[in-house]
């Protein structure tokens, strides 16, 4: 175990507190995507609070914008804004709303409507190429999101322009609000679909494992002549056993008892990871 794993369980406590306090949020997807975001900010991207306007910063887009609580927890931990700001989450007049809002330091683009982020990322990657910059662009999508046709418009453009400075991530937790992704709208042969659009596909079997995720991002960097997509096989609700792989936790708010149970489990896992 490493410190980042411990941190990932600590940040899940921040997410839990946000959602429990506000009585709203998308906890299941937050917990499946959090380690992906954490790995990017800790190990991969050069983006820091002191360079948010630098033309050389790496770009991050949370296309599955409803997992914003996980992004808030990571950005606060990275120092983009004080952790106390998380207490205003979803409160009247707060900028810390239920989807990314670029009035908040460190957030590049507004999102929330699914299927926009990949094409926005294509634009950022094209700009980087035009300006001969070395920055990389990361776009994180949900698997349910892949039913949006606009995702595939972006995939087409990324493949056509061979944007090797673009890396997409699919948070493949196999659940969406109505149930299993494969029942709602199947993504059979997902890797082949991306390959056929001209993408380098990297599967991460343990999509919650930070060293595995980091290795995948390193592999993506080495791939030249085509964009990369990391299909991270994740677990919705990861970290809290009674939330894991349950579609109901897409946006269920924990009861008082559930909150206590979840917090105890996350604290125990944080402590175990620190040992």
């Amino acid at each position: 175990m490493d410190n980042l794993t411990a941190k990932s369980f600590a940040l899940r406590q921040d997410v839990l507190n946000m959602i429990y306090r506000a009585k709203t949020g998308h906890i299941g997807g937050d917990f499946s995507v959090l380690n992906i975001i954490l790995t990017l900010y800790e190990k991969q991207m050069n983006t820091r609070p002191d360079n948010v306007s630098s033309p050389d910063r790496d770009r991050f887009i949370l296309s599955k914008g409803h997992s914003v609580e996980a992004l808030y927890a990571v950005l606060a931990d990275q120092g983009f804004f004080p952790k106390s700001a998380l207490e205003t989450y979803s409160q009247f007049g707060s900028n810390y709303i239920g989807h990314p809002y670029n009035k908040i330091n460190g957030i590049e683009m507004n999102s929330g409507s699914l299927g926009h982020g990949l094409s926005v990322g294509v634009g950022m990657a094209l700009a980087g190429r035009m300006d001969k910059k070395d920055y990389r662009t990361y776009v994180v999508m949900g698997d349910g999101e892949l039913a949006e046709g606009s995702v595939w418009e972006g995939a087409m453009a990324g493949g056509h322009y061979k944007l090797d400075n673009l890396c997409a991530v699919v948070d493949r937790n196999r659940l969406q609000i109505s149930g299993c992704t494969e029942d709602v709208m199947s993504h059979e042969n997902l890797a082949k679909r991306w390959e056929s659009f001209g993408w380098n596909v990297i599967d991460v079997e343990k999509g919650w494992d930070i060293p595995s995720l980091n290795a995948a991002f390193e592999e993506a960097k080495q791939c030249k002549g085509k964009p990369s997509v990391i299909i991270a096989h994740t677990i919705k609700g990861y970290g809290v056993s009674f939330m894991e792989n349950q579609a109901v936790w897409h946006h269920k708010v924990p009861t008082d008892e559930e909150y206590q149970l979840a917090m105890e489990e996350l604290k125990a896992k944080e402590a175990a990871a620190n040992e």
Binding site: P55, R59, E108, M109, G115, H116, L118, S119, V120, G121, V122, G123, M124, A125, L126, A127, G128, M130, D131, T137, G149, S150, E153, G154, M156, A157, H160
Partner: peptide, 27 residues
């Protein structure tokens, strides 16, 4: 080099433009 063809795909046309603009371009 200052022209981008996206094909018959108006949704990504606008999103790609927004990504370019966010990086200082004038699409």
């Amino acid at each position: 080099e200052q022209f981008v063809e996206v094909g018959i795909a108006e949704q990504s046309l606008v999103s790609i433009s927004a990504g370019l603009a966010r990086c200082g371009k004038k699409p």
